[in-house]
Amino acid sequence: MTVTEIQLPAGFTADHEQAVINYLAGNLQGRKVWQAAFAAYDLLDRATLVMPEGHYSFRALYQEIVDRQMADNYLRELLALDYVREDSPALWSSYARQIVSICQQRGWQEAALPGARVLQSYLLCWWGAFARGYAFEVEVFRDLRNSGVEFQAHDLLDRQERYSPSDLIVSGMTGDIKTSVYFVQVATPLQHDFYIVRLFVQGQSYTLAVMLQSSAWEEINGDTILGTLGTLVTGFPYPVRIKQGVHELVALRYDEWKRRILRLQGEI
């Protein structure tokens, strides 16, 4: 595969490149740094690899080289794991190393191809978001099943279903399961009834919260207090009503949401 050049979007500056490097290096302290990283990766969707046979956007390359070739195998191996939380990191890392190998095999090296390191960073970033996102999803599905929550989940091994609008349906409510990073990265409109999300909280490795649309909350019902996600994750045990811009959501801890769903479903 002969590559003639990589064309980065005109608006992609040295600051954007620094944001990509910060992301890889794990230097993600503060809102501005996260914001810059997302902006940089957004721009890179439009970067292109130029080959004699045509131009390929980074997004199209990700679909072709990573998603089409690795996603199904990764998901099959993921679903075969007994302990997803413990063992999935090694699995997604092994695939990440394959991406690095593919880039090397194709001669996408910086010296020969300026921009190649940006491309590799792009592929790794999106792979990380995909792989970790689905590991989290499988972890939640298994936990819900073990807890006795009745739900319908989409089939991850069926490509059509994988791209279905929602990940699961619980008591008629549509929901999505997302890591916080992927959630913000794609930033699609909040069209589902609820979202199960994993967040970082100081002093803990992570915490799980559920955010519901007000209409969905009415199905579950109960009092709320006005607050922020911070109110919830710092230990507040009750549901919190959050107003953020034009959005009004009710957030509660994952375990508390499960308890209320089980009660709604007549299990307790």
Binding site: R31, W34, F38, S121, R132, T179, V184, L232, G245
Partner: peptide, 29 residues
């Protein structure tokens, strides 16, 4: 740099801090 990224993703969740997650999400939406 790349190996550090891969190793880190294998040992941490790398999630966003709760205090600005929703704010940034709504801004990007």
């Amino acid at each position: 740099l790349v190996n550090g990224f891969i190793d880190r993703t294998a040992t941490s969740y790398g999630e966003m801090p709760a205090e600005f997650f929703l704010d940034l999400l709504v801004e990007r939406m």
